[in-house]
Simulated scan of single mutants.
Amino acid sequence: MNTLFPIFVKIENLHTLVVGGGYVGLEKVTALLGNSPAARITLVAPEIRTEIEELTHRYPGLTLLREIYQPNHLTDKDLVIVGTNDKAVNRQVQQDCKSLKILVNVADTPDLCDFYLSSVVKKGDLKIAISTNGKSPTFAKRFREVLEEMLPDSLQETLDNLTAIRNKLKGDFQEKLERLNEITKVLK
């Protein structure tokens, strides 16, 4: 049974810690910055890939700490993503986060995750998050690619037009909702 509750987080309003400077760390940092270029991210790892270091030139909110993870790295962090190749470190970070009530994702270890990172379809202001309940991130990625090809580039124009219509509508919330539902029936 899939009991996940999907939300979209304003990640630029949070301070995210990424533990791990290898390929997984690169993937997670790239995903965060790809969705929110102003995201505030601290990455900690004793070794950090060159590609991650290069991102600091384009993203001033990305801070790199070339050191071994310590519990004090969690100070003032709102969200944590762990992706090291050391299961003991991954579990320690997860336990430290739990004790501080910080939400944590441990890559490729669904049992240690409070949340999963979705595969995201982006077409202008439209974002569709895809989750397989932690079962197969690869399937979610492939499904994202299919949806991206299917969705027309003109979706942004449609969204802009609907926003303009919504802003011009008169009446209370219920009246506006009914009118927007009537207008968007053609999308079925």
Rank of each mutant, 00 (worst) to 15 (best):
V93F: 00
N35I: 06
R58A: 07
G34Y: 11
K77G: 02
I81T: 01
V146Q: 15
L169A: 07
H15Q: 12
I41H: 01
I81G: 02
P6H: 08
I165S: 02
F115D: 05
N35A: 13
K98M: 11
K170I: 14
V104G: 02
G21P: 01
N161D: 12
E47R: 11
L14E: 06
Q92G: 08
R144P: 05
D96I: 02
T158I: 15
S36K: 03
L117M: 15
Q92Y: 10
N13E: 15
R166N: 08
L147T: 09
N181C: 06
L4D: 11
E12D: 10
Q156E: 10
H57D: 13
A107S: 08
L74A: 06
R40L: 12
D172K: 11
E175A: 15
K101R: 14
N85W: 05
A140Y: 03
R142F: 15
D76G: 11
L14P: 00
N13Q: 13
D114T: 14
L117E: 05
D153R: 12
V104W: 00
V19L: 05
L64N: 03
D160G: 04
H57R: 13
G34K: 10
L79V: 08
D78W: 04
E182P: 00
V9L: 15
K123L: 04
T16R: 03
R166L: 08
Y116Q: 08
T3I: 14
M150T: 10
L169C: 05
E175K: 13
L155K: 04
L169W: 06
R66F: 07
L147C: 14
L55W: 00
N13W: 08
N105P: 00
F115R: 08
N105A: 04
R91Y: 08
K135V: 12
F115I: 10
L65M: 13
L55C: 00
G21L: 04
L4A: 10
A107D: 02
N105C: 05
V80W: 00
F139T: 11
T50S: 12
R66Y: 06
I183V: 09
T75A: 14
Q95H: 07
G61P: 04
M150L: 15
K122N: 12
K185G: 01
L14T: 05
L162T: 05
D114V: 10
E182Q: 09
R179C: 13
N181Y: 05
D160T: 11
R144H: 10
K176W: 07
T184V: 08
F8T: 15
K10V: 09
V29T: 02
N181M: 09
E54W: 03
L33G: 00
P6E: 10
G134W: 01
T84K: 03
F8D: 11
L79N: 01
V106C: 03
T163D: 09
